[in-house]
Design a protein around this nucleic acid. Structure first.
Lengths: 334, 334
DNA sequence: GCCCACTGTCGAACCGGTTCAACAACCCCA
DNA sequence: TGGGGTTGTTGAACCGGTTCGACAGTGGGC
């Protein structure tokens, strides 16, 4: 391997001069700079990341903690990972992906050993045990989701309450008086996915204001349970004219379930939902939906994390940022 | 932060003694070791990864290169990522996930800067431009997939030829005389996904040996094109009794397509396929299939990579390893 | 002609570990 | 009782960068 020493020798200058030429932190004469640049090119020099990290206490790496639950719809998580990785690269950072089942100790491992400059947590729950761990390691952290105690940390999440209100409003404007809501599976709520009740409570409250009747159910995460539950729910409420689906797995399976029942959308039933644009394209979902904006959330989380790493004072106190969703009318309501 | 110096001071020994106690590379008296361990516990010491990497030229990090193509079925890739990450952790390594669209230069970036000890490449194509890059950086690399030139690198892949033969045999034993094969999309083959033609060629050759008629088509990667193409293909060959599907997106969409056509499986049509167990569970696919063993492949790739990093001589010359698939009879044939 | 400021470069210290050679202390055996 | 071999510990060098303080050389102002 070639070191900065080799470059310095080859260009006839000292190591520090090369370093300053590289970083631009001191003025270097044009002539010297060109000699150094040529030496770098000819020798094919790339700075050693470990040495640089040691000297600067900056690794230019972000930790990304994923948790995979047996009973979860995995494709949904991928929607966040890619934009996070892309945005990080744009800002000069790499991603250390950690899937350790023991989140709290994984956080300590990568933070205490200074492998990362900051940490992104995906899929946060209300009483997430990783939060205390993250608070104690003294490294910036940004969470995607919402917890009950947000002290000391940055959060980025969709405004699920507003999303629900937008969908109820949309159906209300079209004269619907009885709705069915399929929420995320029971176990997601039990685990502490706050977005589930934030969405549902807002939908219920908004419906009540309009005098709309709304029936709430938990969805399932796997076929064939999904089809069974949807069929059972629709059988139970034959007079409902609007269906709100807040569950990726159910929404992905819905087109074929409805086709099989002979239910036409939107003639027989109006369907609205909540899913990300990418996700909708992947499964070519035709429903009017509030865009869960996974890539927007991922990008914002990384941007905030990095600004907190590089300019902690300007970044100000930790903040909870709710991204306002956008409704995309795909004509699945009447 | 607390350094090895702090620990040494607190335990009343020198830095090197602490280091040896940690690594076990020299004998340390029980009494001293206990004092050191206590100091580590009380001070909460974790070695600085950058410093250690600098001193040992080992980062204990593996690079994982993913490429996301617009037209690809993303969930399938996730099947490899998790087992790779898990196996790496078991062996003490972390994963640097790189999604850079420019693969070759990403390889240079992470290898030349010594951020990783080795590299795993996913989704390799026949003339993958990343291979030359990987060969030139002088770090161990393992590829999932198969390229036309395998010199100097390790490959792990499913034996797609054998997979096809097993499925044709399975249908032949049950008396089928006319088959339809739905292969991966055209563009996958054009991009150089060798598994596509390895599977198809073996299926065609095996069918010919039995005197079975087989019609080959490319599948699609997105709805509603998938349903259209499947319907068109089945309409074209009303007398075919067996369907072989080698395409995740198509296989995921197949149950609802067939139900809608009123085709019963296996009474009207025998269906066999190729997909991973996890993938099948995710979408609850009921078809007799050859298990693509994504987790087995991922784990083997990591194991091999790490043995090549740690014991390059014992690992021997680079090798192409074909994993023999297993057929799981789920009763979708008659 | 002198002083001062500025520009460009350098040497040395430092970041936090690992490892080699050296050495003291002890035990064993002749 | 002295020489040789262990065992346990240490100081110093090293990994490859960054950065601080010093300093030589140049130009400008008076």
């Amino acid at each position: 391997m070639t070191t900065i020493q080799d470059v310095a020798r080859h260009a006839g200058v000292s190591r520090s001069t090369v370093s300053y030429a590289l970083s631009g932190k001191r003025t270097i004469s044009t002539e010297t700079r060109e000699r150094i640049e040529r030496a770098i090119r000819e020798l094919g020099f790339t700075p050693n990341a470990g040495a640089r990290a040691l000297a600067t206490s900056q690794t230019m790496v972000l930790g990304l903690l994923l948790q995979f639950h047996e009973d979860e719809f995995a494709p949904a998580m991928l929607q966040y990972v890619l934009p996070i990785s892309m945005r990080a690269r744009e800002l000069g950072y790499d991603i250390l992906m950690v899937t350790d089942p023991d989140g709290p100790s994984a956080i300590h491992r990568i933070a205490d050993s200074h492998m990362v400059d900051g940490i992104v947590l995906l899929d946060v729950t209300a009483e997430d045990p990783r939060l205390d761990s993250l608070r104690s390691v003294g490294k910036p952290g940004v969470l995607l989701g919402l917890a009950s105690d947000t002290a000391g940390l940055d959060f980025v999440d969709l405004d699920f309450g507003e999303a629900a209100r937008m969908l109820v409003d949309h159906l209300h404007e079209r004269g619907h008086r009885e709705l069915v809501l399929i929420a995320p599976p029971q176990h997601v709520v039990e685990r502490g996915g706050t977005y589930a009740w934030r969405f549902r409570d807002a939908a219920v409250e908004r419906s009540a204001r309009y005098g709309i009747q709304i029936h709430c159910y938990h969805g399932e995460s796997r076929q064939p349970a999904i089809a069974e539950s949807v069929n059972r729910i629709l059988d139970t409420h034959p007079t409902a004219t609007g269906l709100i689906v807040h569950n990726d797995a159910t929404v992905a399976a819905l087109p074929s379930i409805l086709r099989e029942r002979g239910v036409r959308v939107p003639e027989d039933l109006s369907v609205v939902s909540l899913y990300s644009r990418d996700f909708g394209e992947e499964f070519s979902l035709p429903y009017t939906a509030v865009d869960s904006a996974a890539d927007e959330l991922g990008r914002q989380a990384v941007s905030r994390l990095i600004s907190r790493i590089t300019t902690p004072v300007e970044a100000g106190p930790p903040i909870v940022r709710f991204v306002t969703p956008v409704l995309r009318d795909r004509g699945s309501t009447s």
